[in-house]
Design a protein around this nucleic acid. Structure first.
Lengths: 245, 245
DNA sequence: TGCGCCAAATCGGTATACAAATGATGGCGC
DNA sequence: GCGCCATCATTTGTATACCGATTTGGCGCA
């Protein structure tokens, strides 16, 4: 246990980030109970910041409060993935349409840069490239939403997307499918350049629904392409003991 | 200060509800700072539940945390109304489409009942009818979303709609416009009966965008209909002293 | 041997005490 | 007289102690 806490950052935020990271990383079993005291000793802070963190996580939907006021890690199944992709398709296509119609040249160029980086990442395929692709993909979608300037829309999508999903999702794509995905990103960028909101929205919708199809059915017959599988998991070191009980 | 606290309900939840009510009711000036100590003494609870309440309210977007870690009541203007109606149009039409395609007869009947009650409320126009109409309207939209069974969608819309808006919105409608609004509700119900998701989605979209137009431009030339204006406020009894400062 | 009740421990909810940081105000010096 | 610095007050962040409720395990009785 580190004696020198990082006093620079608020401890409540640290606790929030750490607990969130653990949940998203899958360190905790779904439905496993989280006790404030346990997390408190685990993180080396008192129960108060842990409580604040759990409150925020509950609002995010990452933990649930059972009737007996017991807090457990949220569970989800196929229906949740269905919901998430459906909502993303609706919201992100809406956002793409808005953004494309009003985007500045600078914003469009930013998307172009991201596409460029993606191409390079694909071409190079250095160790860890899957993680980089995931990051770039998230960045692209985030940039599109940011371009709308619609803070509420951004928060809405953020509250949905941030789930132990995105990680594994990319893994379901074959390289061929990844190339197609990037091609769609390029098309969206082009729609931005033409200020064609309808086109942008349409592509974004297809893009996400394609992702849904691949995530749900693409596992069966992957063209695979086995790269170094460790690269997919950004946190390889052995984790702390799992949930209590 | 009441000595006999209602120990039955959790104090944090009470604090959340009360602070939320005050914000939505407009008791606090937009951008006015909320101090934990002040709310604590106001509500008769300690700072801890107040903190929890403020955390939740921040997640809801009803309060904002300024850079200097000062918490203020969220401010909004016309652009927020624009955002909200736009998102409602997208999300609720999506929900209506989903729900209509899968709705049970019982769910459709529930909508029918609500339409019936609306007709009666309009015909009677008893004191407080505007408040009742507001409640029925909210209930209708909530029922449609509930019929989707999409918990995430429900939460998303809830996080947007619950805003110091709905109250005043209804006031902007003329009676003629209210009748039209209910007529659209009836059409949505009919679409449910026919399991016509596309139709339902389309009506819902028009319905909400009409609401946007009335809210934004309908104030200028209202056919008015001045009823007792107090009826609009569902909490008539003199509440605790207003915001500090 | 099984069922039920009681007791003890565990955990979440609340209050409060304390520390750290930030903003304001007043005084002092130039 | 103006500006800067120091001190103080206000407020948030954190820790901890206490209380009530719920659950669990054991013991006793049928």
């Amino acid at each position: 246990m580190p004696a020198d806490r990082d006093t620079a950052r608020p401890a409540a935020e640290t606790a929030y980030d750490e607990i969130r990271r653990r949940i998203v990383a899958g360190d905790y079993e779904q439905g496993s109970p989280l006790t404030e005291a346990g997390l408190s000793t685990d993180l080396g802070v008192s129960r108060t910041p842990v409580r604040a963190a759990l409150t925020r996580l509950a609002a995010d939907g990452l933990v649930e409060q059972k009737s007996n006021r017991r807090i457990v890690v949220a569970e989800w199944g196929d229906s949740d993935i269905e919901e998430i992709f459906g909502l993303r398709a609706v919201l992100e296509s809406y956002g793409a349409g808005l953004a494309a119609a009003t985007a500045t040249t600078a914003q469009t160029n930013d998307l172009e840069v991201l596409c460029q980086k993606m191409d390079e990442a694909l071409a190079a395929q250095e160790p860890g490239w899957l993680a980089e692709v995931t990051a770039l993909n998230n960045e692209f979608h985030r940039s599109v939403l940011e371009a709308t300037g619609n803070r509420r829309l951004i928060n809405l999508v953020a509250s949905i997307v941030e789930i132990p999903l995105t990680h594994r999702t990319i893994g379901a794509y074959s390289v061929r499918q990844l190339e197609n995905s990037w091609s769609e990103h390029r098309s969206i960028t082009e729609a931005f350049r033409l200020r064609d909101g309808e086109w942008a929205a349409s592509i974004m919708r297809s893009h996400i629904l394609t992702g849904r199809a691949i995530t749900q059915h693409g596992h069966e017959h992957p063209t695979a392409y086995e790269l170094d599988p460790l690269a997919e998991d950004p946190t390889p070191q052995g984790k702390q003991k799992g949930p209590r009980r």
